[in-house]
Simulated scan of single mutants.
Amino acid sequence: MPDWLTVIILGLIEGLTEFIPVSSTGHLLIAQRWLPRQSELFNIVIQSGAALALVPLFWKKFSGMAFGLGKAENRDLLMKLGTAFLITCVAGMAMKKMGLELPEDARPVAWATLIGGFVIFGVEAICKRRVLSDSLTWPIVIGVAVGQLIAMVFPGASRSGATIMIALLMGLSRPVATEFSFLLGVPTLLAAGGYELLKAFKDGEFATLNWFHVALGFVAAAVSAFVVVRWLIRFVQSHTFNGFAIYRVALGAALLLWLAR
């Protein structure tokens, strides 16, 4: 398979899976068992492409936080996003210094994918017996930040899956939980991409990187993420996440059977 096609496929996988509760990192690790492996820098940069795709979809929210701080709701959202992002950055950097990183092995991905499916089933069963609220409280904001940290350590946990499920468990409605998870993903993924780019520049890795391939993966991730998120925003208005749980259980079980051969 030509390299240009490989990076497009990986970009599409990243964009299609970054914002649905199935783990983009896990899917990229699995895909690169059969496709030529790309650098960690490549994976981080294409995540930034997926993140940027959300800006036009949530332009009203982002422009309000940038230019409409005279309104209390814009200030409130900015403070809550900033707090969750700051918690993620500080704790994430601390975990990196402690040596906690995503393992590059398919077995923990398979287990996390399988277990995550049952977690979604459980959360949805609990939510069925409760009245969910549209009120984004400060405890929920902190819980969502913890969800991002969980996804940093456990491949297959899914950043969006962990954050949305925690928000649901704490009583937030699906549409608001999904929107806040997506909004928080933009600065989180862009910061991760910027950090890795700066690190690569200092280490002299820029000269060895094929920027044409990076650009192809970046664009593929952005386009596919835009399509998926636009669909998912409408989907969560009237559907549960049980369909994604079924997918996770089936995929996790299939991977464990394949690895046991």
Rank of each mutant, 00 (worst) to 15 (best):
M170H: 07
A200W: 06
L102Y: 08
F121P: 05
F19C: 00
M93F: 14
V186C: 04
W211H: 11
G185I: 08
F206Q: 10
L35F: 13
T178M: 09
L169W: 10
V219W: 09
E196K: 15
H213D: 13
V214C: 08
A245W: 03
S63F: 14
G217Y: 03
A260D: 11
F118Q: 02
I233N: 01
L69T: 09
L257K: 03
L189S: 10
L189A: 14
R107D: 08
L132E: 04
R129Y: 09
L197E: 03
P175R: 06
G143N: 03
I87C: 09
V131K: 14
W59A: 15
G143A: 10
A225H: 04
L54F: 07
L183A: 04
A145K: 04
E104G: 13
M79P: 09
V223W: 10
L169P: 04
M165E: 00
I233E: 06
L81K: 01
V186Q: 05
V227W: 12
L132I: 02
A207F: 09
F19N: 04
L28E: 06
E124Y: 06
G92L: 04
Q38P: 04
L256F: 02
D3I: 11
L257V: 14
E205M: 12
Q148E: 15
E18V: 09
S135T: 15
G194S: 13
F67E: 09
W211P: 06
A192P: 03
F19R: 03
A110C: 11
F212H: 14
A191D: 02
M65G: 08
L259W: 00
H239M: 08
G156R: 04
L197F: 08
Q148S: 07
D134S: 13
L255I: 08
C127E: 10
F154P: 02
R33I: 08
V214E: 01
A192L: 09
C89S: 15
L35P: 05
R75F: 08
S135H: 15
Y195T: 07
I233R: 02
T113Y: 00
L209G: 07
G99I: 13
K61V: 07
L136I: 01
V90C: 12
G252T: 01
R234E: 13
S63K: 14
W258L: 12
A72R: 15
T88N: 05
A50G: 06
E40D: 14
L54D: 00
D76V: 13
I46S: 05
A162K: 00
I8S: 13
W34G: 12
R159S: 06
A91R: 02
H27E: 11
F206R: 04
L12D: 00
A112N: 06
V146G: 03
G161H: 01
A84G: 09
L209S: 07
L102D: 08
M93H: 10
W138V: 01
A91W: 09
L52C: 10
F58D: 09
A200G: 15
G26L: 07
L28S: 07
L86C: 10
G243M: 12
I44K: 08
Q32S: 08
